Amino acid sequence: MRDYCIRTATPDDVDGARSVMLDTVYRDFGTGYVPRWHRDIIDLHGAYVAPVRHTLLVAVDPRDGTVAATAALDARGPAHPPNPRHVAERYPSGETAQLRRVYVRPEDRRQGLARRLVAGLLDFAVADGGYRSAYLHTDPSVPGAEAFWRSLGKAVHDEREEPGGGQGIIHFEVPLP
């Protein structure tokens, strides 16, 4: 097992992080880049690096220094719409650490990177002192995503159970340490 370096992204990591994210939305999600969903990927610095209460973490492969995995956190709660009103009200902006873009390149999976990155995000949220909860949503059609998040948190709403299936998204709360 390689000893990946987990760290806050530097300006030199941004292009590699963007590559991991774009590869994921094209390969794993099958949607490609959709501006209303993925705008933050294009401006990682503005979305996660520059804002004080936001962060972008990367896992760097020790063999060649490339970004193998990403994870981000911001202070924006889920918006309604498109998310259910009760979910948006439960996780208000400013008080909610929203976990985003936890992506691992296929060749680097099964190394514990996502779990280590999420632990780093949660530590960041606790150190901030202003977050009362950690929230995320995931697409259960992505292989392994639902099981991974269920191992770390609690599903608070499954849109597949709504009439018509909603967006098919599962909303999770992950306990802060």
Rank of each mutant, 00 (worst) to 15 (best):
L121R: 02
L113Y: 08
R110V: 15
D128N: 05
E89P: 10
R132G: 12
E146V: 12
A147C: 04
S141K: 11
V118I: 14
V126Y: 02
L121S: 03
P82W: 12
T138M: 13
V142M: 03
L122K: 14
R101M: 03
G130C: 11
R90C: 09
A88Q: 08
E146Y: 10
R100Q: 13
P81Q: 08
A114I: 12
P81E: 04
W149Q: 01
A125V: 11
A147I: 10
P106R: 13
D139P: 06
E89A: 15
P143K: 03
N83H: 15
Q98V: 03
G120N: 09
L99E: 09
V142C: 00
Y131Q: 06
D123M: 06
W149D: 00
D139S: 10
R150C: 08
V102A: 01
S133P: 06
G112P: 14
V87S: 08
L121I: 12
L122A: 11
R85Q: 15
L113I: 13
R116C: 01
Q98L: 03
G129Y: 08
Y91D: 06
G112R: 10
P92L: 04
R116K: 15
F124N: 01
R100F: 07
V102K: 01
E89K: 11
S141R: 14
Y91C: 12
A119R: 15
P84Y: 10
F124P: 08
T96P: 08
A145S: 14
A134I: 10
D123Q: 14
G120I: 11
A125D: 05
E95W: 05
R150Q: 13
P92G: 10
G94D: 02
V118M: 03
N83L: 04
G129F: 06
V142R: 00
S133K: 14
R101C: 00
L117V: 06
V118A: 05
G94Y: 09
L99Q: 09
R132D: 14
H86L: 14
R116S: 04
W149A: 01
R132I: 11
V104T: 15
G120Q: 09
A147F: 04
D108Y: 05
R116D: 02
F148H: 07
S93A: 12
G94P: 09
A145W: 01
H137Y: 14
A119I: 07
V118E: 04
Y103T: 13
R116L: 06
G130P: 10
Y91T: 09
P143H: 10
D139G: 06
R115M: 01
G144A: 08
W149G: 00
F124R: 02
V104A: 00
A145I: 02
L136P: 04
W149S: 00
F124K: 01
W149N: 00
A114P: 11
V104C: 00
L136W: 01
A125L: 07
D139M: 08
R100W: 06
R110D: 13
R150S: 13
A145C: 02
P143Y: 07
T96M: 11
S133H: 13
Y131T: 11
D123K: 14
P143A: 06
G144V: 12
A97P: 08
N83F: 09
D139F: 08
R116M: 05
S133V: 15
A114E: 07
W149K: 04
D123C: 06
L136V: 05
V102I: 15
L121W: 02
Q111R: 14
E95D: 03
G130I: 12
